[in-house]
Amino acid sequence: MEKIDENMVFVLNSQQSPEDSDLLHLEWAVVSQLDGQKTVRQIAENLALNTAEVEEIFKKLVSEELLVLVDRSEDDDIVPGELFKYVNHEMTLLLGPVAGIILEDVMEMMRLSRENFDRRKFLGLIDLLTNQIDDPVKQIEFQRNIYPKIKQYLLK
């Protein structure tokens, strides 16, 4: 691999153990961050690495065949607006008109908007929204109500 793009996502190669390689401390730190979801940029941010450092580490790990690139071509898309409307509607039934404000606040906290909301972050949004509901019974009710739509969208 000639170039490591900051939007690439890697997982550990199941055929190779990093323990068999002579990894440096920072390389182990990168390996421990791999979860099949974090991009190279997010890992660099988490570990306070600059572009050159993170690229060098990933290049080494890839060259030693410790990493596998995750193919994100099929699911690399944006959450459709109707799903937000649906979530907002279900939250409003439980929390009243404040639901819309909570939804916007949580998205702002995630630094994402409805127009560019990555589908891989969507379940994180649902987690955060659920935590905004105080009553545990209503939390489950919210998740039960939205689950069929989420299933249809994410597990299609």
Binding site: V11, S14, Q37, L123, D127, Y147
Partner: peptide, 19 residues
């Protein structure tokens, strides 16, 4: 579970289906 998987999805399914 094997990677890659979203733990939020596992949690959501358990929340909803365990009832």
């Amino acid at each position: 579970v094997r990677l890659p998987v979203e733990i939020s999805l596992i949690r959501l399914i358990v929340n909803v289906k365990s009832i």
